[in-house]
Amino acid sequence: MRVLGIETSCDETGVALYDTDRGLLADALHSQVAMHADYGGVVPELASRDHTRRLLPLIDQVLSGAQLERTQLDAIAYTAGPGLVGALMVGASTAHGMARALGIPVLGVHHMEGHLLAPMLEDEPPAFPFVALLVSGGHTQLVQVDGIGCYQLLGESVDDAAGEAFDKAAKMLDLDYPGGPRVAALAEGGDPGRFRFPRPMTDRPGLDFSFSGLKTHTLTAIRQLEQAGQLDDQARADVARAFEEAVADTLAIKCRRALKQTGLTRLVVAGGVSANVRLRAKLEEATRKQGARAYYPRGRFCTDNGAMIAYAGAQRLIAGEKDTVGQMKAVPRWPMDQLSAP
């Protein structure tokens, strides 16, 4: 089955073509980062308009790369949520329109399920069951995954997600959008011994996360440096390093707990923050000590992309799932616990 995947949940337009026999045939991505940078974050209306401009050319690019025609598609999968409703509608309407014209099934896919299954596109995919750490945008979750659609939420952020905390720390440090990569780059020049920030909620049982206190601690440290006239470039780098170390340590500690609690030995890490080098190093150390193994998607599949949607959609389409004709899905808020096995 050849499945076209469409991702338009936020600020990246992703398209990919996945063949259930041959694997990933082609993929393409357009990022809106430069467009939103002047505003310090994503502007929903601009995001929707740009998806409208980019989507059809990207579909043509992917089909050309795979040397296929639209008539050779067997199904279409699109991101139905969660995400920005206007952006979601662009992908949903395009997918339904194409599917109706071609007479093929179409299916709305859960964005976070796409991230969760992204490592399945690698040469050595993890086997079920495993623990998944999902760190994407406004989501930080630990999930026990027994199979596709068989998800048990183990813990999640009770306030700011890790990605949101990175973005807010970046603004405190006068860094441009997107915050995560900017903070990580600045932290490379930081002194790891100058500051030690708290590892929130690691001194109590449980697998939930909270990064709002860390955000406040970071702001306090910056203001104290400002008042002392010491907030130079090196100090900003030292703060960035302390912040990044605190987030990475916190995530690693909770992942180790989740593996111990479930008795599992495989950890999947997916979502934009999973590309963070320091986080990967901490997780590698944590899993090695526990006799476990960590799995990640390749770099370009850590952020939003069409390949993960094509793959996730293909698994459910094979099982017979599909949207009702003419009923597009665009669900801005869609908890993963509402999903079921195909």
Rank of each mutant, 00 (worst) to 15 (best):
L4K: 03
T13L: 01
L17G: 06
L17A: 10
R22W: 02
D27Q: 15
A28R: 06
M35G: 00
D38G: 10
V42H: 08
S48N: 01
H51C: 12
T52K: 05
I59W: 02
V62S: 02
A66H: 00
E69N: 12
D74Y: 01
A77K: 07
Y78G: 10
A80K: 08
V85Q: 11
G91P: 01
R100K: 14
L102C: 06
L107V: 07
H110K: 13
H111T: 10
L116N: 11
E122C: 12
P125M: 05
A127Y: 04
V131D: 05
V135H: 04
L142V: 04
Q144G: 13
V145C: 10
D146E: 15
G147D: 13
G149S: 06
Y151W: 03
L154M: 14
D176A: 14
D176T: 15
D176K: 15
Y177F: 15
G179E: 07
R182I: 09
A184G: 11
A185Q: 15
G190H: 04
G193F: 00
R199C: 06
T202P: 00
D203W: 12
P205L: 05
P205M: 02
G206T: 01
G206L: 11
S210M: 04
S212W: 00
L214S: 05
L214V: 06
K215Q: 12
T216H: 06
T220Y: 15
R223P: 00
L225Q: 14
E226F: 05
G229N: 09
G229L: 05
Q230C: 03
Q230P: 00
D233Q: 13
A235N: 05
D238H: 00
A246I: 08
A252M: 08
I253D: 14
I253M: 08
T262M: 05
V268Q: 06
S274T: 04
N276Y: 01
E285W: 03
Y295W: 09
T303C: 12
N305V: 01
I309M: 09
L317C: 09
G320C: 02
E321T: 08
K322A: 15
K322N: 10
D323R: 11
T324V: 15
G326A: 14
M328Q: 10
M328K: 02
W334H: 09
M336F: 14
D337A: 11
P342A: 13
